[in-house]
Design a binder for these strands. Structure first.
Lengths: 181, 181
DNA sequence: CGAGATAATCTAACAATGTTTTATAACACC
DNA sequence: GGTGTTATAAAACATTGTTAGATTATCTCG
């Protein structure tokens, strides 16, 4: 009595996550259907469900989580100074708009804030905090401003021509508020 | 040769838009399906398409547009000072989370920035600009920060307990940056 | 080396969605 | 009143996420 060997689910999850992310980045999240994804992987739908029993939502969450891991590493790779990390944050959002969308705009099952929230999320926010020491509110406002800039710019709701000016303005604002603590 | 009288499409559009908005606010945008909406209105699906020939997306856009009209009026109703308009903005987003979602997070066909963008959008942004005179970048950063706070708070990604502190911090930051022009 | 049991897989179906077609019914004018 | 145009309605279509039932591949034990 011995079954067929269990597939490497971790590996499979990674492959599916990566493919979903590429497809989303190339054609938008609307194109990321279970059928299309299966075809892209040379597999069938049920295979996706064996790796993600909770369905499409948990798959999008997995992509988002990989995004948080990546942005955390990106932020940590530059000095913990406001200007540097601000630029790194906005660069990340600009370079991976659909990934950023999964992280922040799409419906998500990811828990935030609480201690139960996944480690990559906490690491990403910690990387922001490190650049904006002082009262918690300061880092939170910095993050909100960055997030606002990222989403409004991604949606074409702010003229790209002044992107540089906005970053400089925000930098000055946050620098001056440092003493406010 | 004379046809059946054309229904008052404007009136109908308003009714559908209002019902869609109520339903979204009550049960979330996922619940706003064409069938459900038709049932809620005591009509059939094709009636919705006679009012919105471009389908569901244009209906969501109509709700979003009504949101911009309303937030513009809300902002204009308070003095053009940073603290007052900031509070009005965040209040609006907090009180109508699904409407705000339609305005900024959901896929949208609304044009921004360009001169072709609908008047309510320009009025809403003008109401922010009025509270943050000086260089354009200043108002844009203010808006981005407000938008970031609104969305992160709505998603439970920032602790509600420090909401007040964040507004005060942002207010100070923006006030100090005034002279930067 | 072969048979059987077990679990992963595939085919196919299900329910629900947005949208469109075809047929019906209602209205204004002559 | 009849006629012709047009809004409406019922039903169908294509596509989605998801799930059963049947099939197949693999490992263990004889």
């Amino acid at each position: 009595m011995s079954p067929r060997p269990a597939p490497d689910l971790d590996r499979r999850r990674d492959q599916i996550t990566a493919t979903a992310r590429e497809l989303a980045e190339a054609e938008g999240w609307a194109a990321v259907t279970m059928r299309r994804l299966a075809k892209e992987l040379g597999a069938t739908q049920p295979v996706l469900y064996s790796a993600f029993p909770d369905g499409r939502q948990s798959l999008v969450d997995a992509v988002a989580l990989s995004g948080f891991t990546e942005i955390a590493a990106t932020l940590e790779s530059v000095p913990p100074e406001p200007a540097a990390r601000m630029r790194a944050y906005l660069d990340f959002a600009t370079r991976h708009p659909r990934l950023y969308e999964a992280m922040f705009a799409l419906p998500s099952g990811l828990e935030f804030g609480a201690s139960s929230s996944p480690e990559p999320l906490r690491r990403a926010f910690a990387a922001i905090q490190a650049a904006f020491p002082g009262a918690d509110a300061r880092a939170e406002v910095a993050w909100a401003a960055l997030h606002g800039l990222a989403t409004l710019q991604a949606g074409g709701r702010l003229p790209a021509s002044r992107a540089q000016a906005r970053v400089e303005h925000l930098d000055k604002m946050l620098a001056r508020a440092e003493s406010t603590g």
